[in-house]
Design a binder for these strands. Structure first.
Length: 581
RNA sequence: GCUGCUGUAACUCAGCUGGUAGAGUACUACCUUGGUAAGGUAGAAGUCACGGGUUCAAUUCCCGUCAGUAGCUCCA
């Protein structure tokens, strides 16, 4: 057989490759456990999986055995042969093979669908294809994990066993992928957060993070930056209460659409709710007085702490918590201001993400099943978002049915240094809240009109954003965010006074400094400071004291050699001012 | 919330088939005054997540609860 090159950069090729891999895995499982019932086995972003119904509990201990069987199937170099059957025959065929899930899948296919199967050796699977030509092309394949997954993703259905795997055209590529996973594990913000003493979780507050002194420095710096950028762009800042009457949440529509995610409480005889979103507070703020069309656009920002009852199984470090702070803003405007306001927010988000060196892409999320408002309103809002994007030829992809219940949104998915993406910023156009709260302004015609509103966040949530930053920078933060910017280490106790004096100079310049004058060896102190991911380590000994210098090491660039203290301070202040990463 | 796995010192973990606990790190004291990733000695430190049950005896076995975790679902 001719040895053709596999173009793994091509998405379709990669997909077919992983899909064929999943057939090989299912084939191996069927060989080992003939009673196993197959459900579905697609290719996914970094590999593939297959859902299997089997009484025997597969564990990772079974992987070597399954992989051995998979290798055998690969080296069997079976051709993947496609054939089609009429609907009834297809059902009959799968019934005969005792594959009830496949029968259900076929029954649910539209009448006119061509029902195809793929055969490799003695293994046949219902499958639309396409596939690779033969199993021998899958050179490197590895099982990753096994977990439960509901048949068709519905928790009312039976839980099946989902085996995850990945595969590559060469062993080198597989090894590189494994190495990348290892690197991600080292960067896990939960691990680094603990090592650097940034935040903590306690059993007493599941999903409620505690920010520790060093974590608060990062948080406060981010917020200071955020305020400064908002001031520049004509935003005013407000702060609204955490607890508001239950009635308010009926008005806003949260009661109907968000009740299960909310926490409730009583005050005297009254029913109150803890806010899961900031908008109703902002609505009340708006309603306190009359506005003229001349007041618009009106931009009101709020660092708003919200509480949401997330499922216990969904909690994940700082990335998914039950209380978080949205860097929210509500912009009220006239219809003719919509486009420029949306573009203004897009520019704002772009500026912030670029500062951290994040790449990102935009998704337009459209009307979900559970939503309020009319089709026309949704069309209007969705079109407005599209037009703003199209006017600047900003690329985006469409995410059908993923909008908020009150309006469509633009979601900003940012990519970190390991190529993983996270949804952070969103811009949501909302015709509903202004109606529900009966917001008005007086137009040039002297009549009352309804303002248009957008909700938007840039960081998304401070907590999640900090989690992403930790992983993106592997704890080696840009200097302006670093909890400890400089740590001075003395070679022996003799230099303690000089070290303390130098530290004071740095502190007076506004730097965050620590000193380590303990009676320990320099190698030991250095190791500790490096583990703490201090931005700059300055060693002080005989030479430095005589020359008024520091011997420096940067967490990002390694050894920097000796530098005069005054110049070091000036350099650092410059680095902070420019917010270099 | 569902399914699997896990919960032992401040941290990372060992403790086979039941006989009330150990290592390394960190911490404290002393010795060592050392120039770029761990100097030495000693000490203190645990209601083995919590609540039941089985047993002469439970960290170990069983049940439940709580929490963490990998997924499913959901989301900033």
């Amino acid at each position: 057989m001719a040895k053709e090159k596999i173009n793994f950069e091509d998405e379709q090729v990669r997909h077919d490759f992983r899909h064929t891999s999943s057939h090989i895995m299912a084939h191996a499982v069927k060989n080992l456990w003939p009673e196993a019932k197959l459900a579905i086995g697609p290719a996914i972003e970094n590999g593939f999986y297959y859902d299997i119904d089997l009484d025997y509990k597969i564990t990772e201990a079974d992987f070597p055995k399954i992989q051995k069987e998979m290798k055998r199937i690969v080296s069997g170099n079976h051709k993947l042969e496609r054939f089609e059957l009429p609907r009834e025959e297809a059902i009959h065929y799968m019934e005969e093979k005792k594959e009830p899930y496949k029968v259900e899948l076929i029954r649910d296919l539209p009448e006119d669908t061509i029902i195809s199967f793929y055969k490799q050796g003695d293994f046949v699977d219902l499958c639309a294809g396409p596939h690779m030509e033969h199993t021998g092309q899958i050179k490197a394949i590895k099982l990753m994990s096994v977990a439960g997954a509901y048949w068709r993703g519905n928790e009312k259905n039976k839980m099946l066993q989902r085996i995850y795997g990945t595969s590559f055209p060469t062993q080198e590529e597989l090894d590189a992928y494994i190495a990348r996973l290892e690197e991600a594990k080292l960067r896990d913000h939960r691990k680094i957060g603990k090592e650097m003493d940034l935040f903590a979780m306690f059993d007493e507050g599941p999903g409620f993070p505690f920010f520790l002194p060093k974590g608060m420095i990062i948080r406060n710096e981010l917020e200071a930056f955020w305020r400064q950028e908002h001031r520049k762009r004509g935003y005013d800042e407000i702060r609204t209460p955490l607890i508001l009457s239950e009635e308010l949440w009926h008005t806003s529509g949260h009661w109907d659409h968000y009740q299960n995610n909310m926490y409730f409480t009583k005050i005297d005889e009254g029913d109150f709710a803890i806010k899961p979103m900031n908008c109703p507070g902002a609505m009340l703020t708006y309603k306190r007085k009359m506005y003229s069309y001349r007041d618009f656009p009106m931009r009101m920002a709020e660092m708003g702490q919200v509480h949401r009852h997330e499922l216990s199984g969904a909690l994940h470090g700082l990335m998914r918590v039950r209380t978080f702070t949205q860097d929210d803003a509500h912009i009220f405007m006239l219809p003719e201001q919509v486009k420029s306001e949306i573009l203004g927010v897009i520019e704002f988000i772009d500026h912030v993400y670029n500062l951290f060196g994040f790449k990102y892409h935009i998704e337009l999320s459209t009307k979900p099943e559970d939503s309020m408002g009319t089709e026309e309103e949704w069309d209007l809002a969705t079109t407005a978002l599209k037009e703003a994007m199209d006017s600047k030829s900003i690329p985006y992809i469409i995410n059908e049915g993923d909008g908020a219940f009150y309006g469509p949104k633009l979601d900003f998915h940012l990519e970190d240094s390991l190529g993983r993406t996270w949804q952070c910023g969103t811009i949501q156009l909302d015709f509903q809240m202004p109606q529900r709260f009966d917001l008005t302004y007086v137009g040039a015609d002297g009549e009352k009109h309804r303002p248009i509103m957008i909700h938007r966040v840039i960081f998304g949530s401070i907590e999640r954003f900090i989690g992403i930053l930790i992983e993106h920078f592997a704890g080696k933060f840009p200097l302006w965010l670093a909890p400890v910017q400089v740590k001075l280490l003395t070679v022996t106790e003799k230099f303690a006074d000089y070290a303390l004096e130098t530290a004071q100079k740095l502190e007076e310049a506004g730097l965050r400094v620590e000193t380590d004058i303990r009676n320990e060896k320099i190698g030991y102190k250095l190791r500790e400071a490096r583990n703490e991911r201090v931005s700059y380590i300055g060693v002080i000994g005989e030479r430095e004291m005589e020359n008024g210098t520091l011997t420096l090491r940067s967490s990002k660039e390694g050894e920097l050699g000796e530098m005069e203290v005054g110049r070091f301070i000036a350099d650092l202040l410059e680095e902070i001012k420019e917010k270099r990463c």
